[in-house]
Design a binder for these strands. Structure first.
Lengths: 107, 107
DNA sequence: TCTATATTTCCATAAATATAGAAATATAGT
DNA sequence: ACTATATTTCTATATTTATGGAAATATAGA
C-alpha cells in the first residue's frame, strides 16, 4: 500500500454519505445490497448515489456484481483491513508503546 | 466518537501533505517538531503549511505548544487510536470474523 | 526600541468535489 | 418489439478545499 492509495481510500470514506454507505454495506454482510436499496435507506438521489458508489469502487473499498436488473454492492473487508493496517503501521497509532515513549521510530 | 468527528478526522488525513505531516510527527515522537522544521523537511511554503496544521489541529489529530519563538507540533496518538477504533467497530474492518462470514451483524 | 526570526492571517485564485435533474443505457418480463 | 424497472452517464451548478504571496503578529535577543 502506497501513500496515494491510502489517500484515495481515506478520501473515499471521509465523506458523510460515503461513510454511511460503507457502514451500511458492512452491516449487510458479504451479500451486499442493491443500489436502489441503499439509496432508499439513506435517502440519496440515484445519480448522487451512483457518484458516491463509483468513488468507493474506484478506491477499491467496495465491490459490485450484477444480479438480474440489480447491481449489488458489498464492502471489501480486505481493502478496509489493509487501510487500517497501513494507518497502524505508518502512522503508528494502535501501538501502545508508541503513545508516550520514543520507542516508535522511523521505519 | 460520532460520525461528524470521524469524518473531520478522516478528511484531515485524506490529503497528501497532511498525511505526510502526521506521519512525520508520529516519527518525531511526543516531543514533536517546530513548524519551520516540518515545512523544510516536506518542502511546503509557510502559509500552506500553516493551513494544513490548522486542519489537523482542528480535527484534534495533533497538538501544539509554544517553545520560545517556535511552535512545536506533535501527533495526538490517542485521537488517532480513537479514529482507528471507530473504524474498526463501526466499519467492521479488523475483525477477522467479519470478512467472509455473516457473523458480523449490525450493532 | 530596533532587528531578526517564526508563524499565522489575509486575500485572491485555482482546483477538486458534491449535488441532482434529465437523458441514456441495461436487463428482463409480456 | 414494447414496457417497466434499475442504474449510470451527462451536464450544469454550487460548494468546498488547496495554494502561496504579502502583510500582520508574536517572541526574544542586542
Amino acid at each position: 500500500m502506497d501513500i496515494k492509495s491510502a489517500i484515495l481510500q481515506l478520501s473515499s470514506i471521509a465523506q458523510e454519505a460515503r461513510l454511511k454507505i460503507f457502514r451500511l454495506l458492512v452491516q449487510a454482510g458479504q451479500e451486499g445490497l442493491p443500489a436502489g436499496n441503499i439509496g432508499e435507506t439513506l435517502q440519496i438521489p440515484a445519480s448522487t448515489l451512483s457518484f458516491h458508489l463509483k468513488e468507493l469502487s474506484h478506491a477499491g473499498l467496495i465491490n459490485s456484481r450484477q444480479v438480474s436488473r440489480f447491481i449489488y454492492y458489498s464492502a471489501n473487508y480486505d481493502a478496509m483491513n489493509g487501510l487500517l493496517a497501513y494507518l497502524t503501521e505508518n502512522c503508528c497509532a494502535g501501538a501502545k508503546d508508541c503513545a508516550p515513549s520514543p520507542t516508535c521510530k522511523p521505519k
